[in-house]
C-alpha cells in the first residue's frame, strides 16, 4: 500500500505540474488555454532536439524546455489571445473565442512534431542524466520521481504565495474579479496578462521535460491526453485555486492508481471522472472554489 501511495503521489505531481499553468491563466486572466498541451509537448520536443546534438543534464533541459514554453505561450498571447480580447464584443464571447482559438492553435505544434517525428516517440536519450532508484523500507522511488515530487511541491507553494502575497499576484486576482475596474485602479492588464501567459507556458515546458524524463518518452499527442485531465482537475479543485488544483490532481491520481491496482485498467477513466462528477454534483464550484455572486 505504501508503494501505491508513492506511485500515486508521483502521478498526481505530474498532473499538477501540467495543470498549474492552465490553472493560473484561467483563474486570473480568464484564459482557458487549450493550446497548453501543445506547448507542453513542443517544449519537450525542442529540448529533445537540442539534446540529440549537445549532451545536457536534467537542469539544463528543464530550463530550455521552460524557456521554450514561456516564449511560445507569450507569442500565442500576443498574436492570438490579445487580438481576440480586443475585438470581442463581450467577455463571454471572448472566452468562447479564446477556447476555440486555443484548440486550433494547439494543433499546430502537434502537427509540426508529427510531421518531423512521423509520430514516433521522442525522449532525452542522449542526456547526461540517468535515473537512479532509491529503496527505503521496502519502497522504491526513482530520482526522477523525487524531482517531480519536489518541483510540484515547491512550485505549488511558490505560486500560491505569489498570487496571495505579492503586488503582482493581487493585481492578477483583481483582473480575475473585474478586469475593467482593475485597469482603472492602475493595474497594467496587458503586461500582467503577458507575464501570466509566459509563466503558464514556462510551467508547461517544465512539466513537459519532467514528464518526458519520468516516462522515458512521449509522443506528439501526449499533451492532448493530459489536457482533459487537467481541465477536470481544475474544475474539481475550483477555478483559480492553486491548492484546489493540487488537491484535485492528487484525488484523480489516487483514484486512478487504486482502480488500476484493484480492478481492470479499463475502468480508470470511468471511475476517476465519475468521482469528479460526484463531487461537482455535491459542490458545483469545486472543492476550494467560491460561489459566484452575481449582482443585479
Amino acid at each position: 500500500m505504501s508503494q501505491l501511495m508513492i506511485d500515486a503521489a508521483v502521478l498526481g505531481s505530474i498532473y499538477l505540474l501540467f495543470c498549474l499553468g492552465m490553472s493560473i491563466s484561467w483563474g486570473t486572466i480568464d484564459i482557458l488555454n487549450f493550446a497548453h498541451g501543445g506547448i507542453f509537448m513542443f517544449s519537450a520536443f525542442v529540448a529533445s532536439q537540442i539534446v540529440s546534438h549537445v549532451e545536457l543534464g536534467l537542469v539544463a533541459i528543464c530550463v530550455i524546455s521552460a524557456v521554450v514554453g514561456a516564449t511560445v505561450s507569450a507569442a500565442i498571447d500576443v498574436l492570438a489571445f490579445q487580438p481576440i480580447l480586443r475585438r470581442a464584443k463581450n467577455q463571454r464571447t471572448a472566452e468562447l473565442q479564446i477556447l476555440i482559438g486555443g484548440i486550433g492553435i494547439g494543433t499546430i505544434p502537434v502537427a509540426i512534431v508529427q510531421v518531423y517525428t512521423l509520430s514516433e516517440p521522442f525522449g532525452f536519450l542522449h542526456s547526461s542524466y540517468e535515473t537512479t532508484v532509491h529503496t527505503f523500507g521496502g519502497m522504491r522511488l526513482s530520482s526522477t520521481g523525487l524531482v517531480v515530487l519536489g518541483c510540484a511541491l515547491v512550485l505549488t507553494v511558490s505560486i500560491s504565495y505569489w498570487l496571495k502575497n505579492t503586488s503582482h499576484g493581487l493585481a492578477l486576482r483583481a483582473i480575475g474579479v473585474d478586469p475593467e475596474t482593475a485597469e482603472l485602479m492602475g493595474v497594467k492588464r496587458r503586461q500582467l496578462s503577458l507575464l501570466t501567459m509566459a509563466i503558464s507556458g514556462g510551467l508547461a515546458g517544465l512539466a513537459g521535460a519532467l514528464l518526458t524524463f519520468n516516462l522515458g518518452a512521449i509522443t506528439a499527442e501526449s499533451g492532448e491526453t493530459l489536457l482533459i485531465k487537467a481541465f477536470a482537475i481544475i474544475i474539481l479543485g475550483g477555478v483559480g485555486s492553486t491548492g484546489g488544483a493540487a488537491l484535485g490532481a492528487m484525488i484523480l491520481a489516487f483514484s486512478e492508481v487504486l482502480v488500476l491496482r484493484y480492478t481492470g485498467g479499463g475502468w480508470v477513466d470511468a471511475v476517476g471522472f465519475g468521482l469528479i462528477l460526484a463531487v461537482l454534483l455535491l459542490r458545483p464550484q469545486g472543492i476550494f472554489g467560491k460561489k459566484e455572486v452575481r449582482r443585479v
Binding site: L11, I14, N214, L215, I218, S222, T225, L226, L260, G264, G265, G266, V268, D269
Partner: peptide
C-alpha cells in the same frame, strides 16, 4: 488491461 490513452 490499460486504456489506449494510458501513459504511465
Amino acid at each position: 488491461a490499460v486504456q489506449a490513452t494510458t501513459q504511465d
